[in-house]
Design a protein around this nucleic acid. Sequence first.
RNA 1: GGUGGAGUUGAGCAGUGGCCGCUCCGGAGACUGUAAAUCUCCCGUCUUACGACACCGUUGGUUCGAAUCCAACCUCCACCA
Length: 383
Amino acid sequence: MPAHFQLLKTDTATAARRGRLTTRHGVIETPIFMPVGTQGTVKSLTPQHLRDIGAQIILGNTYHLNLRPTSELIRELGGLHQFMGWDGPILTDSGGFQVFSLAKLRDIRDDGVAFQSHLDGAKLFLGPKEVMGIQQNLGSDIAMVIDECPPWPCERDACAKAVARSYKWAGQCKQIATDSGFLANGHHVFAIVQGSTFDDLRREAAESLAALDFPGYAVGGVSVGEPEPEMLKQVGATTPFLPADKPRYTMGLGTPSQLLKMVALGVDMFDCVLPSRVARNGLVFTPDGPLNLRNEKFRTDAKPIVESGEGSGNYAARFSRAYLRHLTVAGEILACTLCTLHNLSFYLDLMASARAHIEAGDYGTWHRAWIERYETGAAARLA
RNA sequence: GGUGGAGUUGAGCAGUGGCCGCUCCGGAGACUGUAAAUCUCCCGUCUUACGACACCGUUGGUUCGAAUCCAACCUCCACCA
């Protein structure tokens, strides 16, 4: 059986990698950004929009979809792909992050996590058996193991416990996926490395999980409020200990420049709500930093969001900043759609540029220049 | 002409003697494995505001103290003549 992940090229000046990941619903060229569609929709976009901007894979969420409409119903209706009308690959998050984000509504136990539904307070339990069953029902192409994502900052003891628990759960998830034939049918299961700010725990977690031979590995426990240098340090403390022939995925990150920095650290996959969420609040990305379209200065600005480069080739590019500002300020639904279209397009274009430069062999100089321009522009706007 | 009602710093309102708001509109910021088309701050003036000084139709009065009580007047609305 051919490997599901091909490492096509590794950059010499950085640890950046150009790869190709095969799933049941198609091939993914890496590095790649994955738009987040928690509830079976990338908010405000149709699947056609996603295809138009070149999305290769999107996310769904175990916790949310099992709460509503339930994974059983989705299975009965043909699986998540058919249910939401998206025939490309889908990665489903396990609900592990909700252990962190819904902290007030949960109780962590050795066999899993007891939640109270954020919708109606109903009791819900997620353990290895539950999350794998749910992700099988959804028909996920890439299922994530359930993990415990400790907060930042975190005491070493608590972190070590989270790492140990996550390791145990990961092994159980893989066993379940093996026994059920989920893995044999071409679905993938990715493990998640925790360890917070403790390099030795990160390494230990990465190496022990690597020994379990998962189809892919995620860096978890980032994007939980830590400053950027800390976040990059944690990613850098993890990737060297992950197998080179498997895809690496940092969960929940990041800003455009953070993505490029992490690609340079050897990360292949990203997901983040940032571009879609800020779009709904009127913030759009450009190669010269973000623009807050609600700002009065855009009231008469006839230019498109970006005139050339990343984000300039999508449908939203035909509209002026003035029009987009008007829609945003007026609270019109179309503002969400167009700004989301733009931001995701920008992120996907950025990853396409990264792939091209890794192939061309100049990723190191290109990404430094790109970040320089972006951060200079962002700083100038704040001044 | 009479009777009644109303006038609160952009709009709409609350405010029966000291503490004084609320919702829009307007301005800015935040947002990182989505409880988020959300949240926070500002929105009379004083370059900055710990602060100072205003303002409740007008003018006067009562009072230690008035948007609030009293008097006269102005404007608007409704009804009656």
